[in-house]
Design a protein around this nucleic acid. Structure first.
Length: 973
RNA sequence: GCCGGAGUGGCGGAAUUGGCAGACGCGCCGGAUUCAAAAUCCGGUGCCAGUUGAUGGCGUGAGGGUUCGAGUCCCUCCUCCGGCACCA
């Protein structure tokens, strides 16, 4: 530990910056002094490596302290630099981290850069500079800005997703998924070799459509199951490839010609790209996918154990979209006895089967293709073809623009409703989506509003089969629960009449299963995750293809597969999907040996081509919190001891204390995408034995959006915030011409001209004030408007603290020996409150408590050294620089971060007497002073003795006295 | 439409478990300091009535309810923010 810096009077050195310096005492807490103190301490922290946190195994690691992993969502380093939203969450985690350190924890508080991805590439394209350079510059700016806030990050652990030492492990994790399959019997992922072993041993056979059939489950009927030996090598390869967790598949993708890439469903909003709002079209393309759907149930169920915001839990549940229902096979009327010619549907309401009066299939449904090839008697081929073509070419955007007016065409085919044997027509309509269920529905117009709308539009039969609700079934559907009616058929032996919905569902599902025409089925909205991007600025896949199009993994030892240097990285803007890396021809065409494919799998001399897609921006952020545990490890994604310690607290013979990152703070915009993807990767790595916990983040918190005032002219055009002057209550004018403008609150954005630059605020007030202001604005989770006018409140607070103890002429401490008893008790209360407020992330009330105490202290006069010491410690998480300065003035040679959080004496938490309000019939009429531990009887006597109360109840009979000790007295007359 | 959250002074907000509504800060008003201004400091500040004061009444989006007591719990409704949305 080096000595703290001397207290040089930088005020004189930089006196020229402040012409009126001579008029002021030299040691007044001005913005200038704040800047001085702050930069001096930041330099000290950096030089002394103050925030370094040792790992298990390091000589200075303290095994006796509990661990706390406090994580920020690392930023995307854009060229624009930090905005005021960044430091909001970062200040909160910094307060918690510093507090945890002071309360004796080993604290992991890291920071890094999410630097791959679309925006960096597009920024590079617009500026004409290579993304590697623009990104490096942006990172430097971000880092410099973050350090200016005095955040206590352990910069030794800094990681960047574009660093080959980092993305080597991103590729490694992807390979893990590539080499894994999901065993539904054990409900976990396993290595593909184990699948092959089981296939060879015969415990697993190959079912129809390459399904995995566990022979022990007896679910197989002998005729449609084949054994592994019966497959030829190409079939075997296909079987394995079809079960990898990372697999190649031809998908209808969201193709964005403007961005020149396919996008995940999650990245498409209202038919436009999330980035840039460009139109997106549907197009078939061979893509790498992740089998996230295998984890649907676990991703859903494990939400129960997480301390996450209710809204985020709800959004994840909705995204996974689990629903319970039944699958039903409807025979076709043209081939009633052919079990291969049925129309399979999914329904959540099997109890309404008797009300199914028609069926609808998606325009992309295979049945439509069949009908167009072999039209039936009633098929209007032209109408059908036109409709299907339209639906195919219509982008999602167009669909959104239209109303939900129902359109559709009759196919000419009829199905048989299996419960009552009636012939029902099969229609096609675009309100049925191919991607959900089986792309086909049984329509129950009486009890589903969409089917009702459709039936009304095309004059189809509406049959009521549920009572309940007060709606007229001719006007609208009744979709709620009720009691089944018109739902019996003796011929088929089914009767669910008079059963409430739940029981009706059970009974009819059992009947379907017995007749072998349906079964209970759980469905999810969650789809597999499209993981290929056709861009340059991302991680290359560690994969090559041979001449036949078979794919082979690059061996682990040959990672990373480096992103090739390219001169021309502009996108190939096209309707015909082409990955950008295809331009790097020298890199693309190589040999198996050169690429690093194991000679056991492929002859090293074999010519191969590399995969030219890259991974999406999400890849790096799916696991960065694991890398922070041990960021320089060259043998693993993180050393096992380090990973286990930071994620669970277990080390040596110490037991696990938690199950993941203890606190994760970031924006609510990541409620689904990042947080779902990261949970998925985490569970995969957990299944494969690479990490210790089944969930990554125990406690999650979203900081609220910081909005800002924007100003509009009468014609709605915007005026920059700086060009506006307030001339009276809620009256604002444009400085240039004095014309009135109106104030609106909106998200900060360049286009609204209402962006606040953190650098300016730090220059005008200092980082300590900035940190305090953002924490004091309101609850951390709330959306709050930035108001520069209010900053002075917390600035004055720091000035008062300073002046309370510092002689502004000499810079010397002013203290006294004897403490004031009331103030001492108040200090204990404040210490307790600040601690518990930090624990519940109520930074605003913690600061209010410190202000309150300071105001009280000013009235008292002076502090003792001991009081200042304790106050400096509780202030230090919030305003670390001024706290360090006071701490060193108190004579300490080491940093205040080495201090110990002051202890609270329980007996000091209350004053010797407390004031209790006395109510008469619920209205406060007087107050009495009693001992804090006074019993009910004493309090009641005191209350009734009170002169004011005596006066008011003189002529009335007291019926009852309610005494809540320590709280209140209520007299009922 | 469905899901999640929120409505409290002129403004940001506090009240952690049903117990003094409005902590703390901004702004505003008055005063000190200053030649003056800025900055800073001290005092006041929910609304209405009361000449001042004591004091009284009203008051947490609206209406009703439970309770000795409701910002907090229950019912009905309104508004705003965020998310999802033809998912069968």
């Amino acid at each position: 530990m080096t000595n703290p810096p001397p207290h040089t009077t930088h005020t004189t050195k930089h006196g020229t910056d402040m012409p009126d310096q001579s008029q002021h005492p030299s040691f007044r807490y001005t913005a200038q002094l704040a800047r001085d103190i702050e930069t001096r301490w930041q330099q000290y922290w950096s030089e002394s490596n103050t925030f370094r946190q040792p790992n298990p195994g390091d000589s200075d690691f303290d095994v006796n302290k509990p661990k706390f992993y406090c994580l920020d969502m690392y930023p995307y380093p854009s060229g624009a630099g930090l905005h005021v939203g960044h430091p909001e969450g970062y200040t909160a985690t910094d307060i918690v981290s510093r507090y945890k350190k002071l309360t004796g924890h080993n604290v992991l508080h890291p920071m890094g850069w999410d630097a791959f991805g679309l925006p960096a590439e597009q920024y590079a394209i617009t500026t004409g500079v290579h993304p590697a350079i623009t990104t490096k510059n942006a990172i430097e700016t971000f880092k410099r800005q973050l350090q200016r806030f005095g955040f206590s990050y352990d910069w030794n652990r800094e990681v960047s997703t574009i660093d080959p030492d980092y993305y080597r492990w991103t590729q490694w994790i992807w390979l893990k998924a590539y080499h894994a399959w999901y065993d539904t019997n054990q409900d976990r992922a396993r290595h593909v070799d184990e699948l092959i072993n089981e296939l060879e041993a015969g415990t697993i056979c190959v079912g129809c459509e390459d399904a995995i059939v566990h022979t022990s489950n007896e679910e197989s009927s002998a005729d449609d199951v084949r054994s592994w030996r019966d497959l030829d090598p190409q079939e075997q390869r296909r079987f394995i490839d079809n079960h990898r967790l990372a697999y190649l598949d031809e998908q209808m993708v969201n193709w964005c010609p403007k961005l020149g890439t396919a996008l995940a469903n999650e990245e498409v909003i209202d038919g436009k790209s999330e980035r840039g709002q460009h139109p997106v079209y549907r197009k078939p393309l061979k893509q790498w996918m992740f089998r996230i759907t295998a984890y649907a149930d676990r991703l859903l169920n494990d939400l129960a154990d997480l301390e996450w915001p209710e809204s985020t839990l709800a959004m994840q549940r909705e995204w996974i979209g689990r629903s319970e229902g039944a699958e039903v096979d409807f025979p076709l009327a043209e081939a009633p006895d052919d079990p291969t010619k049925t129309l399979r549907v999914y329904t959540t309401r099997p109890d309404t089967l008797f009300g199914a009066t028609f069926m609808v299939v998606a325009p992309e449904h295979p049945l439509i293709e069949d009908v167009l090839k072999n039209p039936r008697q009633e098929t209007d081929v032209d109408a059908l073809r036109t409709y299907v073509e339209q639906a195919r070419h219509r982008s999602d955007l167009d669909r959104m623009a239209e109303s939900k007016e129902k359109t559709g065409v009759f196919t000419g085919i009829y199905a048989i409703n299996p419960v009552n044997n009636s012939n029902i027509p099969i229609w096609t309509a675009d309100y049925v989506l191919m991607g959900y269920g089986h792309g086909a529905i049984m329509a129950v117009p009486a009890h589903d509003q969409r089917d009702h709308d459709f039936a009304r539009a095309f004059d189809l039969l509406i049959t009521q089969v549920i009572t309940g609700g007060e709606v007229d079934i001719r006007d609208e559907a009744w979709a709620g629960d009720g009691v089944s009616i018109n739902s019996a058929n003796t011929e088929n032996g089914i009767d669910i009449n008079n059963l409430p919905t739940e029981q009706a569902k059970e009974k009819i599902t059992a009947w379907l299963e017995e007749k072998n025409i349906g079964k209970a089925k759980v469905n999810y909205k969650l789809r597999d995750w499209l993981f290929s991007r056709q861009r340059y600025w991302g991680e290359p896949f560690p994969i090559v293809f041979d001449q036949n199009g078979n794919h082979y993994a690059v061996d682990e030892e040959h990672l990373p597969v480096l992103l090739p240097e390219m001169e021309d990285y502009h996108p190939i803007e096209s309707d015909d999907p082409q990955p950008l890396l295809a331009k790097a021809t020298d890199w693309v065409h190589t040999t198996a040996g050169e690429a690093g494919v194991s000679p056991d799998v492929l002859d090293p001399a074999e010519t191969v081509i590399r995969e030219t897609n890259t991974m999406p921006g999400w890849a790096g952020s799916c696991w960065y919190y694991l890398r922070f545990c041990d960021p320089r490890n060259n043998d693993r994604l993180a050393g096992q001891d380090a990973e286990r310690y930071w994620m669970t607290g277990a080390v040596d013979d110490k037991q696990a204390t938690s199950a993941g990152v203890d606190l994760y703070i970031g924006g609510a915009e990541h409620s689904v995408l990042h947080l779902l993807y990261a949970r998925f990767w985490h569970k995969m790595l957990y299944d494969l034995g690479e990490i210790s916990t089944s969930e990554p983040f125990i406690r999650l918190f979203h900081q609220g959006l910081i909005t800002s005032f924007a100003y509009q002219r009468a014609d709605k055009s915007l005026v920059p915030t700086d060009d506006v002057e307030e001339i009276g209550e809620d009256k604002f004018v444009e400085k240039a011409n004095g014309k009135p403008v109106t104030q609106v609150t909106a998200k900060m954005s360049k286009s609204l001209k209402n962006v606040i630059n953190p650098d300016d605020i730090i220059h005008d007030f200092g980082a300590d004030t900035f940190r305090l202001y953002e924490m004091y604005m309101g609850p951390l989770e709330a959306t709050k408007p930035w108001n520069t006018r209010d900053i002075v409140g917390v600035y004055r607070f720091l000035q008062r603290v300073w002046r309370l103890v510092i002689n502004e002429e000499t810079g010397e401490l002013m203290l006294q020996d004897q403490h004031d008893d009331q103030l001492e008790r108040a200090l204990h209360r404040t210490i307790a409150k600040v601690g518990s407020d930090i624990d519940r992330l109520a930074m605003n009330t913690a600061i209010a408590a410190m202000i309150e105490w300071t105001n009280q202290a000013i009235k008292v006069g002076r502090l003792t050294a001991d009081q200042l010491e304790r106050f400096a410690i509780i202030l230090s998480p919030f305003a670390p620089h001024i706290a360090e300065e006071l701490w060193s003035k108190l004579g300490h040679e080491s940093s205040i971060t080495q201090a110990t959080w002051p202890t609270v004496d329980e007996t000091m938490l209350q004053d010797e007497t407390i004031e209790l309000p006395v109510q008469i019939k619920g209205k406060v009429r007087s107050r009495i002073n009693v001992a804090p531990d006074a019993d009910q009887k004493t309090i009641e006597e005191e209350a009734l003795k009170d002169p004011r109360i005596q006066e008011l109840i003189a002529d009335k009979a007291v019926r009852k006295v309610i005494v809540v000790p320590g709280q209140i007295v209520n007299i009922i007359v």
